[in-house]
Nucleic acid binder design. Structure first.
Lengths: 226, 226
DNA sequence: ACATGATATGTACGCTGTACAGAAACATGT
DNA sequence: ACATGTTTCTGTACAGCGTACATATCATGT
C-alpha cells in the first residue's frame, strides 16, 4: 500500500517537510505568529535559510501546509459514528476544532487568511454535510447548514483567539474570565450600560459554556427549518 | 462645544492623523494588507517615514486606529429605530457591517487580529444588546445572543474575504459565484460527493442571500429560546 | 533677538523574504 | 575507479521592512 518510493537520485534531503512544519508550529506557539520566520525555521531544523525553499516554494506555502496538516489531524471518528445523535456529532466536531485551534492561536489567522480549499478543509465540510444529511436535511439544506455551522465555529474561535492573543495566553479559563471581568468593571457604566449590567455574562464570552450555548441556539435554528 | 483648542506651541504638524489613516486605507485597498507599510503611508502623505511616529506610537497603533474609525462609521440610525421590528434591525446592522467590511477586505484581518475593546467596538455590542433587550430578552440572554450574532456576522465576513482575498477581488457577486462554481466542478466527485452534489448551493456561499439565510436561522434559534 | 518646545528629517541598525551562483553528496554508466 | 548527472545545501547579496537616535526646522512667548 505504501508508495513504491523509487529511490531518489541526487543529494539526499537533510530534513523532512514535516520537520519544517514542526519547527514553524513550535515558533508560532512560543513566540506568536509574527515570530515565524524562514530563518527561524531553518535554524530550528539545522539548515541554511534558503534550503527551506527546496521543500516549499515560499513562506506562504509553508503556512498553508501547516494549516492543512492541522485540519488533517481532526479526529473524524466520533463525528462519523451514525449511532450517536446528530446534534452530538456536530458538537463533537465543533468542540474538537475549537480545542485544537485555541491551543495554537497563531494558526487561526492562517486558517482565516486564505480560502479553505485544501483537501482536508474540503473533507471537513464534506463530513459536516454528511451529518446533516443523516439528520434528514436535503442536500441543499445540508450544504447551507454546513456553511452556517462552519461560520459559527470559526467565528467564535477567531473572536476568542483575538482576545487572548497578545497577553501571552492566560492559562485557565477561570482566570481568563476573571481578567475579562476586571476589564469590564473598569469601563464606564454610563457609556456602556448594557455591557456593565450583564458584566458577569459578558465576562464569560469565550468560554466553552458560552460557545456551546451559542452552538445550541444555532442548531435549534437549523433544526426548526427542516 | 468644540474643544478650546489651546494654540499648540512648537512646529506645526504637516499632516493629520486622519490623512495618515486615509493613506493606510488607500494602500490596503489597492495593494492588499501586506502592502501597507509605514514608508508607503509616509510617501502618500508627503512626510518622512519616521514622522509617522509623531502621530502614532507604532504601526500596530495605526492599524488599530483604522479599525476603530471604521467601526465608528457604521450607521446606527436604522438600527436604533424602535419602530422597526427587531429582527429587521439586527439584519440592517449585519448587512451594513458586511457591506462595509467586504469593501475593504484587508480591514477584516485587522479587526479579527486584536480584541474588540475599542470604544466603537464596545458601542456596537451595546447597540446590539439594546435591540435584543427591546425584543424582550433578559439582560443575560441579550448579552449571550449578542455574542452569537457577532460571531456569526464576523465569521461569515471572515470566511468571505478569505475566499476573495488573493485574486484581486472578483467584481460582481454573480461572477464570484460563477468562479466558485467552476472551481467546484473541477474537483473530484468521488472524494467530495456531498459538495459536488450540491454544487449550485456551495457555489452560492458568500452571497448576500446565503448570508441572510444563515442569519435568519440564527435568529430563529435565538428567538425560540426566549 | 532669543530661548522654548513640538515636529520633521537624515541616517542607521537589525530583521525580513528570497534570488542567484557555486559547492557538496549521492546514484548510475563506464 | 572514475566521470556524469541530478538534486540539495550553502554563501552571498538585495531590496524592503519597522523604528531608534541625533539633528535640523519652524512657530511661538518673552
Amino acid at each position: 500500500m505504501t508508495t513504491p518510493t523509487t529511490r531518489p537520485i541526487g543529494r539526499p534531503r537533510a530534513v523532512t517537510e514535516q520537520a519544517i512544519l514542526d519547527a514553524a508550529l513550535r515558533l508560532m506557539d512560543t513566540g506568536g505568529a509574527t515570530s515565524v520566520s524562514v530563518r527561524g525555521i531553518a535554524a530550528q531544523v539545522g539548515i541554511a535559510p534558503n534550503a527551506v525553499y527546496t521543500y516549499f516554494p515560499n513562506k506562504a506555502a509553508v503556512l498553508r501546509a501547516l494549516v492543512e496538516r492541522f485540519l488533517g489531524e481532526v479526529n473524524h471518528d466520533r463525528f462519523a459514528d451514525r449511532q450517536v445523535p446528530w446534534r452530538e456529532r456536530v458538537k463533537a466536531l465543533a468542540v474538537e476544532l475549537r480545542e485544537r485551534l485555541v491551543a495554537h492561536p497563531g494558526a487561526v489567522h492562517l486558517l482565516l487568511g486564505g480560502p479553505m480549499d485544501g483537501p482536508n478543509a474540503m473533507m471537513l465540510r464534506e463530513s459536516l454535510s454528511e451529518v446533516l444529511a443523516d439528520a434528514g436535511a436535503s442536500p441543499d439544506d445540508a450544504a447551507r447548514a454546513s456553511y452556517v455551522l462552519l461560520v459559527y465555529v470559526l467565528g467564535a474561535i477567531a473572536l476568542e483567539v483575538a482576545e487572548l492573543d497578545h497577553p501571552a495566553t492566560a492559562p485557565t479559563e477561570r482566570e481568563r474570565v476573571a481578567t475579562r471581568r476586571a476589564a469590564i468593571d473598569s469601563i464606564s457604566t454610563q457609556s456602556y450600560p448594557r455591557t456593565t449590567e450583564s458584566a458577569a455574562t459578558v465576562a464569560k464570552y469565550y468560554t466553552t459554556e458560552q460557545f456551546l450555548w451559542g452552538l445550541d441556539r444555532v442548531l435549534d435554528g437549523l433544526d426548526a427549518h427542516t
